[in-house]
Write a protein that binds this DNA or RNA. Structure first.
Lengths: 165, 165
DNA sequence: GACTCATTCTTGAAAGTTGAACTACATAGG
DNA sequence: CCTATGTAGTTCAACTTTCAAGAATGAGTC
């Protein structure tokens, strides 16, 4: 079972790429967080929740569904929605078909906040990313990110591999 | 001054790439956080601090320097070092040449933790990233990340553009 | 139906993060 | 010197995230 062999360290090139990755991704995340905190009064992840809701049918989603698509825990979502509800941007609604369930619904006020901030946010993403990459690089980035996600996606296969959890 | 024109929205392809980016990067960050929290008892960023210290001369760095190279605020670093100090992995030392200054120094215990966890961490990074990408893709990723960082780097030029802050 | 087990969502406390205020020391100009 | 201003690091309060329960409902089995 145990692997006694020397671990395969990263090559020089891999180390450089890894550092560049960490550097760039944290800078971008910080940049977007600050931009949205300043302009919209919420962090990037909260903004993402509103976006998801805005694109859902009837502007609402079940809590679990929203958590899954935003890749956060249900607990974290509960707190986040509570905060957004205080802001008046989201409202909770009971699910008639499952009494345990709750919908989070985007309010008109929430929609308005989104309208006001979408241009600035898109501009920030453009300026940081798409306006700086060549068309080829955009394609490459897409391909690379898809490969990464495949390897990390919580797949159904994991259900058969409980020891990996 | 104000730009009254319609904002340039993202194309379909750009949207897909952006989503893939957010998806993949959050999955990877979560994955590494969990791996290190489980194996080493600290989040990824804290581990990164120990790594930086381990590579510095005399295994120590000034607080500001460490904060800068880890891309976090000095405030956050103060808290983080306080926690790592409690664990016995880092020790604070006064700076003789500047009485305001503090060094954070990696202790032997901290170095040992690093030794124990480096193989597992490298394996996780490999498995998630480098073992899944072609050599070309690794190069492409490096180039893309460097371009991103350039655009976000807090450059000296910003000092002349206070209105951008 | 009653029992068991899974699922949905919430809660509360601990831990972590942020931004601003604050202390202490350093540096430059008169 | 002395004053003004800048820098290093910490601290506080507000906020966010995590982790471990916990309450309520659903679903399968006998």
């Amino acid at each position: 079972m145990g692997d006694m062999t020397e671990p395969r360290w990263l090559t020089d090139e891999e180390q450089h790429v890894w550092r560049a990755y960490l550097h760039a991704t944290t800078l971008l995340e910080d940049h977007l967080d600050r931009q949205l905190q300043r302009d919209a009064g919420m962090p990037h992840i909260y903004y993402g929740l509103l976006v998801q809701l805005s694109q859902a049918p009837r502007r609402r989603l079940r809590m679990t569904e929203l958590a899954r698509s935003a890749k956060i825990t249900r607990s974290r979502l509960s707190h986040a929605i509570a905060r957004l509800e205080k802001n008046g941007w989201v409202r909770r609604e009971n699910c008639p078909s499952d009494k345990r369930g709750q919908f989070a619904r985007l309010t008109d006020e929430g929609m308005e906040i989104l309208r006001q901030n979408a241009p600035g946010h898109v501009a920030a993403v453009r300026q940081a990313l798409f306006d700086r990459l060549s068309p080829d690089q955009v394609k490459q980035l897409g391909a690379i990110m898809r490969v990464m996600a495949e390897g990390l996606e919580p797949s159904d296969a994991d259900a058969d591999l409980p020891w990996l959890r």
